[in-house]
Design a protein around this nucleic acid. Structure first.
Lengths: 141, 141
DNA sequence: GCCATTTACTTCGAGGCTCGAAGCACCTTG
DNA sequence: CAAGGTGCTTCGAGCCTCGAAGTAAATGGC
């Protein structure tokens, strides 16, 4: 009752993720980052309004205490500052510092270059992007 | 210098993995598994000769001590037994027990059903499988 | 055949990640 | 204004991961 095609796709998805993680762990250390902090940094787009803790936790599929822990690491490293949302004074937002923007740029660049997808032709990438985004949209909660 | 298409693909791949992990953690607990032990179990194909610790560690992108720890959990739960490779008596192999085969089947089934890819049309799956396997092969070490 | 080296694995200890429970501050509803 | 809900943090426990060190077996040089 298991679809071999589905199994192949899911396995490939997992393996591509793990392979990238494996390749990237060492170089990230030189930026003072772990995989968890790098992903959190990636999730803070400097060109958009700073996200609240709740929004960030949603993006990273983790819960509030975990996110608090990770953001603390970024704050300790001077990459992020906590702000207060004036519209809802309960909410804290994560704001990138100048150094945060710089390190984020380097971390994302590293993640992309080390990914097996980096060797794809533009045509393949276009195709993959379309298919994967479609799957993501369709499974949106 | 960052390719938006590449970024989109890498991000989608990561997100699909994390979303699956998130959905699957609770149900796996009912099988007595964590994500780490489930992945290890998945990596032991009952229809192939039992893999050595070294081979398993390679498949899971982890190092030897980590794998030892994870396999110990599977042994403690009665899902795996350690054997000795007669061709190289240094090497230990991971052999699924009867219960191991049963739980593995259920765990893999769960992983596939909960994956966002489960909602794909056969045509999409075929397409994705082809593209992703190609990326994997091309980046093989 | 013997000893040094290499390989496969395990144990141990430290540190990072993740989570539930509990508590605080603020918002919202009546 | 009171009661309940929401957003976040702290705390403690458990799991995951890794490097260092140690054991057993295979390999290579002599």
């Amino acid at each position: 009752m298991t679809d071999p095609l589905l199994e192949s796709v899911v396995r490939a998805n997992h393996e591509l993720f793990m392979r990238t993680s494996d390749r990237v762990t060492r170089p990230l250390e030189e930026l003072g980052l772990t995989l968890a902090t790098a992903q959190a940094l990636w999730a803070i787009d400097p060109d958009r309004p700073p996200p609240s803790m709740k929004v960030l936790a949603g993006r990273l599929y983790c819960n509030a205490p975990n996110l608090s822990f990770v953001v603390n690491q970024l704050v300790d490293r001077g990459l992020v500052e906590r702000g207060t949302d004036p519209a809802d004074r309960r909410a804290r937002v994560a704001v990138l510092t100048g150094r945060g923007r710089e390190i984020r740029k380097r971390a994302v660049d590293l993640l992309l270059r080390q990914s097996p997808f980096a060797e794809c032709e533009p045509e393949e990438l276009r195709h993959l992007a379309e298919l994967l985004e479609q799957v993501l949209d369709r499974s949106a909660d």
